[in-house]
Design a protein around this nucleic acid. Sequence first.
DNA 1: GATTTTACGTA
DNA 2: CGTACGTAAAATCT
Length: 809
Amino acid sequence: MAQTHTEGPASASILLIGEAPGADEEATGKCFKGHDGRVLDSLLYQTPIVREACLITNVARERPPGNRIDFYFEDKKCTRPTNKMQLFVEQLKKDILFFRPNIVIGLGRTALWALTGQTSISQFRGYVMESTLVPGQKCIFTYHPGAVDNEWKLHFPCVMDLRKGYANSSSPALPQDKRSLNATSSRREFLDYLLFLLHDHKAPIAVDIEVKNPGTHIDIIGFADSPNHALSFDFFNGRHPRYSTSDEMEIWLSVARVLSKCNTIMHNGLYDINVLWEKLHIFTKNFYADTLIAGHVVWPEHPRSLGFLASILLNVPAWKHTSNQFPTLYNVGDAANTYGIWNALEAEMIKQNIKSTFDFEMSQVKPASMLQLQGIPINRETQKKLLHDDSIDDNGIAKGIYPRIKQLDSEIESALGKKVNLNSSQQLQKVLYEDMNLPTQYKRRKSVNETRKTTADSEALKKLARISNNPTLDLILEWKKLTKLSQFIEVEPSPKGTVHTCYNITGATMLREDKGLLIDDEEQYRSFGRWSSSASIILPYGSGNLQNVPKVARKIYEVPGKVIVSPDYMQAEAVVVAYLIEDRKLIELFEESYGKTKKYRSENNLDVHKVTAADMFCFPIEEVTPEQRQIGKTIRHANNYSAGPGVLATKLNIPLAEAKRLMTLYHLKCPQLHLWHERIKDELRKTRTLYNLFGRKHKFTDRWGDNLFRSAYSYIPQSTVGDLMNKALVKMYENYPDLIDLLLQLHDAVYAYCDPSEVPFVMKAMKECMLMPLEVNGREFTIDVDFSIGETWGTMKEVEYTDYVKESL
DNA sequence: GATTTTACGTA
DNA sequence: CGTACGTAAAATCT
């Protein structure tokens, strides 16, 4: 079998190491000759590295069957090499010792494993390291070009790693770590350091805490006064406190003084300041900069964990892997690197002129912190009634959720003739497609290349119920619905009777409780600038995410003696889209209905969906039936997000051909939408970057194609409305601290509570905060605001603003 | 016991 | 060929 060999100029300062030869490499005997080679070339093209000036080789010198590297390993995790692989690694070692390049750039997991014994490429990429295979040998690792080609989000870190590799290639010396990090400071040392920060240090400081769970006890705190100097202090010795209560108190008092004086930099400081406040009543007075937020503003499309940002922005040794063996070393590294990352990100924001987005996100920290710690009270009586009410209505149907589920259980069991776990998609599919012989339903695919997957989701069940007329399917649907609903209602409140959530200003949640430590999740980074809501780590009471509670379950949320007032932006995304695509008819409609009462709007047919229907079917608007309005609504909705005719057919329950006809008709009547889509594609082609109406940028790094386009089409309206709402929320919090008591944020609505007598004042103030002019193509417009009021969160009713707020107010 | 898949709630 | 988010339970892997 043909082998590849290390090739290139013997005096090269860089040695590139891939994984194993593929078909093209095998045929030519050269490394990186085929598709991966072209990807590598395009990656290197964005760096100063010249491929011809580099040595280049692979770990495995022979092509494994099916190009599967695990062929050379005993185990699936690829940690125990076969004899053959051991020989390859020996050969690699010989080659490195022979050529002695200044730096080895390893491409992919296998190179990382061969040179260092480490296996997690995502954890160790981007850090200059010393090889364990060849001691003294400087190396750096990044993703394999094949992986980059598969997942385009890896492109950016890979290029950054290659650049770092080049920057470190001028000499064989390992970089010197100039930092002075004290991970084992004594109490005296630490106290003296805090005094120094308090009295002598003028610049900002960086802070990081570590907590022990459950209970969220702070066990380590670290401070840095520059990127190169940090101290960390451990309150515990194993599971026991190291110092007496009074000695510990002395430290906390000093910490509190420092945090009330110094400008503070943190990574995800929203968490730290909440823990410090909730557990110790330490107030971080000048929370000055957050590197999670800065990372989000600069690169919303990339990971924002400290480890990732450090790998991109700093030239420091990897330290995240020390978290388990040496927590204080990990903490002190966090503190110092947070400082360094902030310096780099601040410069980057100024360079890109996006500091205003950062300031805006920082201004959200205080209200978000308040909302999380305050929580929302629930009514345990309502909760009990919804779940357990065993009274029965006229049709013999139990009113409570649990009794009803019980009824459904037995009905379904007798209909199916056996007990089936309806939560199990497998078991349910067996019943539907084998026992009942119903036509198999398939999931919608993201692309035609994917294999079809069978499904038993609610869409499939609804369809089967329709075609088979079997009432059991409706029972199953109801069972599933109620089971899901019950999870939102059966929440355990805090001792104070409140339920808490964690708002993530930077979108997709970053932190996950994992073996008692907070670990960064590198998976999802889309974040269009809307807050996300997840389980509170500090006050773990409630169903977690509060932004997806179903209407019925919202009934348990109420503030005793108060009413809930909620403004929301009317047709917010549709208005933004109308102005973006310059849909004259709609713009006129929105301008005419702005500030008008519901009554006026309905009397004058100022209704988007009616207008759409009238336009499509060429009717006078007065004659549009409710059914036609629904069609108009569905089509507009589907088109705004560029859904296909298949979805429309399902939604409207019409044949595919009819759906296609309706869509064509819609685009004939509203050609601006497609034109706008083309403009967006043009922008993407040029820079892959879009800016929303507030200047928030987002780079779209997915593979070029329809999925990328759809994501991009939704970006500007979605993120603009999110930012608009948050700007209003910050205004409410800052301008009306006594009048507006905020309760919840739900993307395009906020909820506040107040005494019934205060409602007009609260409404007026909220509206004032929310009405903000936006601008598209030099045209100014304002999205109108609507109000709902209710005793509970689940019983909000739309009200007329002018019925409450008279001119005289 | 940890990780992945499937399903489903909201804007 | 809606997208964005987070969570729960089952299935699967080790």
